[in-house]
Design a protein around this nucleic acid. Structure first.
Lengths: 181, 181
DNA sequence: ACCTGAACACCGTTCAAGT
DNA sequence: ACCTGAACACCGTTCAAGT
């Protein structure tokens, strides 16, 4: 049976989740899928394009709709948290998402919803794109910091203060306070 | 005359500034310095350690002392702006600084001052490390976003809304508002 | 002390040729 | 349509051997 693009993306997500971005090479993927490297290039244009698909897959389970009874502020906070929750267990996921976002901003739907929710919460349109970036930098920065900390611990080095869930929630609250929503 | 570690770091900063991180390889550096690759490994332990030095050099010109007549809030904002100004012209500088910061948090002095200034401005010690991260994620995220935008433009693709100085200053203000300082 | 030469174990990407 | 085989032009790191 012929290889599919889905299978390539699946394998890539698997290697990323289990071994991190440093081990996610086209050649490694080819070995995993029992094909020659060149075969991958019939299904994806290049590695960057593949990583965009990987990022989209990582964010694929982030639901669109907030709880019905949530306030607009709570809706923003809960989407930010859902994004963090989706990325937290996958090593280097923040880097992959950042790459994907610069290459194809529209491909990552949940990140675009953030802006909509911010406007619904009262952030004026001239600022909502900036506010989205502010929040997103916090989400991705928190995920990366926490993962770097745990990989340093695995090597036996100290990693600075805890930057887990508490720090994340506090940061979201601080930003939303600053936005006045 | 013997090669020095300073010269290796100089060359690395030069390649980064002129061509970006993708072109900053040990072999490229060796060519630039007219030595064999192995020679570099007498002066630096590995590439990561070299990048820590590169990051420190990039932030080396960021001054410690704020204007005497500045309010504590203005002191924080002006340090954040000075960091941004130092990194903005160097491609991929945000990635390099983030790497360096996770590998050797103490090596990047200006980033530690940020926490001190935040405490002087009234952020309680339990939150000052988190607040520093929040601000730093904004600084590095803004630098990276702006650079990605201009490199996409160079290739003739659209890069989304402007994320320049205005967005940066607005973001700093929003964070400081959220911190209540 | 400082560097060369050469190797080891990798990369991403392309492409003629096969089926 | 889909894949193989093989090449091209690279990587980071190590290390015996030279000076």
């Amino acid at each position: 049976m012929a290889l599919t693009r889905e299978q390539v993306v699946d394998a890539a997500v698997g290697v990323l989740a289990d071994f991190g971005l440093a081990d996610l090479s086209m050649r490694r993927l080819a070995r995993e899928l029992d094909v020659q490297v060149g075969a991958l290039y019939w299904h994806v244009k290049n590695k960057q394009e593949l990583l965009v698909d990987v990022a989209a897959r990582l964010l694929g389970d982030v639901g669109r709709l907030p709880e019905a009874e949530a306030t607009p502020r709570e809706a923003v906070a809960s989407l930010a948290t859902a994004i963090r929750t989706a990325l937290a267990p996958v090593p280097d996921s923040a880097e992959v998402v950042q790459l994907a976002q610069t290459m194809q901003p529209a491909a990552l739907e949940p990140l675009t919803w953030l802006r909509e929710l911010l406007e619904e919460a009262g952030v004026p349109p001239q600022h909502s794109a900036w506010a989205r970036h502010l929040l997103l930098n916090h989400v991705l920065g928190s995920v990366a910091a926490q993962q770097d900390r745990s990989s340093l611990e695995a090597v036996g080095e100290a990693g600075g203060p805890d930057l887990g869930e508490d720090a994340f929630a506090w940061g979201v609250g601080t930003i939303l306070d600053g936005l006045g929503i």
